Amino acid sequence: MNSINNLLVPILVTLILSLPGHAKVSSEPDMGIQAAKSPQQEPNCKSKKKCQDTTDPNDPQEPETPEPPVNEFLPAGSSYQMQLQGALNTEYVADAYVFDLFDVSQETITQIKSTGAKAICYFSAGTYEQWRTDAVDFAPEAIGEPLGDWPGENWLDTTHESVKTVMKNRIQLAKDKGCDAVDPDNVDSHTQQSGFNISYAQQLEYNKYLSTTAHDNQLFIGLKNNLSQLADLHSHYDFAINESCIRWNECDMLKPFVDANKAVFHVEYLGVSGAGSSEFDNMCSIANNVGMYSLVLPHLLDDAYRFSCP
């Protein structure tokens, strides 16, 4: 009889446990419902990346905004020299030299950099200059109205693809020649009588294109004038170059650069008689208050004279 009982008991236990309503007993501790859920099962998980600390390596990655070169550019208050015509004078003690991209040799650029100064290569990003070697690369329909008192120079349609292609090639040339940074000029066509109806948004897109292209080439880039778009562009540019902000009472608009410890290179065209005058003293006072480095230079930027604030 005992042998029969020994056979029946295990069978009965097995039948009872298999009936509906009976859960399997586990020796594991109860970790709660939330611990059993994966991020994909979470009802409020709208985005996979928000729910996981790591990204699936097979997920497509969003394109990143190009970053400027690893090393920072010059801080606010740094000195500079700017000369765009004539044989470049490299005898000044300055933190940076601004000079024409086409007219200065790679050897001279190397010499400037050997002193510890930054080499900033200038080119016009908004005008056609008939004497440039790449002038033939602009589409005829992209060439607009003459530029004021500058013979042989015309405004460009900066929305035209041929213009963007030329500027991309110029930035590449700057990289190839060893420039540290570029200074694209005439980037305010939307405020000019250019012959084209360029909107604020179109100009902004073009100026961001210049910044992105420079950073893609590991070059720094400066915002030349164009204070009307500074609020939208200062975070995309590494320094600023300004002409005549004191004359137009606009220097305070450059403070976002200084506040971010980015160099601001400023020039006023006062003439030789302005040096040492009350006008010159006022210029230096304003420059010091803003935190920018100011020079008095000739309008032709030919190194005929140079006066800096004490």
Results as ranks from 00 to 15, higher is better:
122 Y>P: 04
19 L>M: 14
229 Q>S: 01
231 A>P: 01
229 Q>P: 01
66 P>M: 09
198 I>L: 13
86 G>L: 10
206 Y>L: 06
292 M>R: 01
295 L>D: 03
202 Q>I: 06
62 E>D: 11
201 A>H: 04
298 P>T: 01
150 W>K: 09
159 T>Q: 03
72 E>M: 04
64 E>I: 13
203 Q>W: 05
260 A>R: 07
271 G>D: 07
211 S>T: 08
141 E>W: 05
57 P>V: 05
140 P>I: 00
93 V>M: 09
31 M>T: 12
141 E>F: 12
248 W>Y: 15
251 C>P: 08
291 G>A: 07
101 L>I: 08
224 K>M: 05
214 A>N: 01
130 Q>F: 06
95 D>I: 05
139 A>V: 06
64 E>Q: 14
90 T>I: 14
72 E>F: 12
96 A>Y: 06
184 P>G: 02
273 S>E: 15
67 E>G: 11
66 P>S: 06
25 V>F: 14
188 D>A: 04
243 E>R: 04
151 P>Y: 02
221 I>P: 00
45 C>Y: 00
259 D>T: 11
154 N>Y: 10
233 L>Q: 07
13 V>Y: 13
262 K>H: 11
292 M>A: 14
72 E>Q: 12
105 S>C: 07
197 N>E: 14
23 A>L: 12
276 G>T: 09
170 R>P: 04
151 P>C: 05
155 W>H: 06
133 T>R: 06
65 T>I: 10
145 E>A: 15
94 A>R: 12
171 I>A: 01
105 S>Y: 10
67 E>I: 05
212 T>Q: 14
182 V>T: 04
226 N>H: 12
47 S>Y: 15
132 R>F: 01
290 V>Q: 02
126 G>A: 09
82 M>S: 03
247 R>F: 01
117 A>I: 00
273 S>Q: 13
274 G>V: 06
56 D>C: 11
164 K>Y: 04
200 Y>D: 11
107 E>P: 00
179 C>M: 09
61 Q>L: 15
147 L>M: 09
298 P>W: 00
37 K>T: 02
310 P>G: 14
243 E>M: 02
96 A>S: 12
31 M>W: 07
72 E>N: 13
259 D>Q: 14
279 E>A: 09
263 A>M: 10
285 S>T: 15
123 F>K: 09
184 P>V: 00
190 H>I: 00
152 G>E: 12
226 N>K: 03
264 V>L: 08
111 Q>T: 14
249 N>H: 09
289 N>I: 03
174 A>Q: 03
32 G>V: 08
23 A>R: 14
29 P>R: 11
210 L>T: 03
50 K>W: 07
246 I>E: 13
95 D>G: 12
130 Q>M: 09
169 N>P: 02
298 P>C: 03
283 M>H: 01
258 V>H: 01
95 D>Y: 06
285 S>R: 13
266 H>K: 08
275 A>V: 14
244 S>N: 08
288 N>S: 13
233 L>H: 09
